[in-house]
């Protein structure tokens, strides 16, 4: 399958002009190769991390904050954005569905294309939205999946919606039941 132009391509993060630079990482460490060569972690004013641990506390006033889960971080981020002022830049590193989730939250609070930058170093597994029943099937590894909602055999297209944060799946054997192409693993 040829890559479609709607499928996100990610550039390594570089710092634009801004008053405050906030880096959000899904994980305790920043994977290698996420930052442009001219950028180091010290360039960010704040770093927020999802560390997957129930006992951490985001320390007030600290430049580095730890969160228990993606939801835990998102709640704090929304609270922060509701009173933020112009000049903030947000950078997000993580799985594809995580970075587009954070992106959508930021846009809800008025950040635009130049104010949020996302980078998904591993985007092998896909979140898929069924064109017919609209259910989501998550963590799809291959081009052919069974829809969690209606049970249809879906072909996962390379067509990605930032609005739904999902790839599109449609019933591949609609015309001839049971005629399904070979399932292929996604390249990351």
């Amino acid at each position: 399958m040829d890559a479609m132009i709607s499928r996100p391509r990610y550039d390594r993060l570089s710092l634009g002009l801004g008053r405050t630079h906030l880096l959000i990482i899904q994980g305790s460490e920043l994977p290698l190769g996420c930052l442009a060569s001219s950028v180091t972690l010290d360039d960010f004013d704040e770093i927020w991390k999802v560390v997957s641990c129930s006992s951490v506390l985001p320390e007030p006033g600290s430049a580095e904050k730890q969160f228990r889960s993606a939801n835990h971080l998102t709640i704090a981020l929304c609270h922060r954005l509701s009173s933020e002022t112009m000049g903030l830049r947000v950078y997000v590193v993580g799985e594809e569905s995580f970075v587009w989730d954070i992106n959508a939250q930021c846009r809800r609070f008025g950040l635009g294309n130049d104010e949020i930058h996302v980078f998904a170093p591993y985007h092998g597994a896909r979140r898929v939205r069924c064109a017919h029943c609209r259910a989501y099937t998550t963590n799809c590894q291959n081009t052919i999946v069974t829809c969690d909602g209606c049970g249809a055999t879906l072909l996962v297209r390379d067509h990605f919606s930032r609005f739904w944060n999902a790839y599109q799946g449609f019933q591949i054997d609609s015309e001839e039941p049971g005629v399904v192409p070979e399932s292929v693993a996604f390249r990351s």
Binding site: M4, S6, A131, H159, S161, R162, F163, Q168
Partner: peptide, 22 residues
């Protein structure tokens, strides 16, 4: 095609599935 799936896309993303023309 599906408006519901494509809503919010840029013009170029919306037409991504069309072959050759890109």
């Amino acid at each position: 095609w599906s408006l519901e799936f494509d809503v919010g896309m840029s013009f170029i993303e919306w037409h991504a599935p069309v072959p050759l023309a890109h």
